[in-house]
């Protein structure tokens, strides 16, 4: 049955209405969870607020397990679901830069939009910086075009990479996530006890 748009069950202008609605729900959940505050987000690196880890990992395991069940029940054709292609070198470098940008800037693009929406100037500056970064990348593209596409592994899944079924991968993710929730809860309790000046905004 699904996915609906690639199979042209939903067509035409409805695409964009749905995009708006999904985007809207995304923004609402991000803001309501506290991702419009960079100090909440950066807390994940210092142990005083693990909201990022909680929301991120819960969303990931719910979607991952749900997707596999959908596939099992025949509701969704996994071959039509976009699997991000893996370009090893480029993605390792990209992940490195994003990690650095994350701990310095305190936002990621999606969360910065919601920060802009509620009037945070640091969000506006981050989003502008992001735009400049994309522009710089595109201008310099001819210099690293080969690097950008080097080590192309194709649309490989995690299970294929490690030679085990994706069901096992999902199960491992769930276990790891739940252990992480418990451990970070302990850490957070301890760190917050020694911290006085942090308050939410």
């Amino acid at each position: 049955m699904g996915p609906l748009i690639p199979q042209e069950i939903i067509t035409g202008q409805w695409d964009f209405v749905i995009a708006l609605l999904i985007g809207g729900a995304f923004g609402f959940i991000l803001e309501a969870s506290g991702f419009s505050s960079s100090r909440n987000i950066a807390g994940v690196f210092y142990g005083y607020n693990f909201v990022v880890l909680r929301v991120f990992f819960t969303a990931m395991i719910v979607a991952m397990v749900g997707l596999l069940y959908f596939s099992y029940f025949g509701w969704i054709d996994l071959d039509l679901v976009f699997v991000l292609p893996t370009y090893l070198n480029s993605m390792l470098f990209g992940g490195f830069l994003m990690g650095l940008g994350f701990v310095i800037g305190g936002f990621c693009p999606g969360t910065s939009y919601t920060a802009v929406a509620i009037g945070k100037i640091d969000g506006i500056v981050f989003a502008t910086g992001f735009l400049i970064g994309v522009f710089l990348f595109a201008e310099g593209f001819p210099f690293y075009e080969d690097f950008y596409t080097a080590n192309d592994l194709g649309n490989i899944t995690i299970g294929e990479m490690f030679g085990i079924s994706n069901e096992w991968i999902a199960f491992l993710f769930v276990v790891v996530a739940i252990v992480a929730f418990y451990v970070t809860w302990l850490i957070e309790k301890r760190v917050r006890k020694n911290m006085t000046e942090y308050k939410f905004e």
């Binding site: 960079s38 991000l84 990209g94 800037g105 693009p109 950008y148």
Partner: peptide, 23 residues
């Protein structure tokens, strides 16, 4: 810091084929 982080994130997201939500 926000501007610098944004620029790094902008360059990184293109190398990484997406940002924290997409990739």
């Amino acid at each position: 810091a926000a501007g610098a982080g944004g620029i790094l994130f902008g360059i990184g997201s293109q190398f990484g084929r997406g940002c924290s939500s997409g990739a």
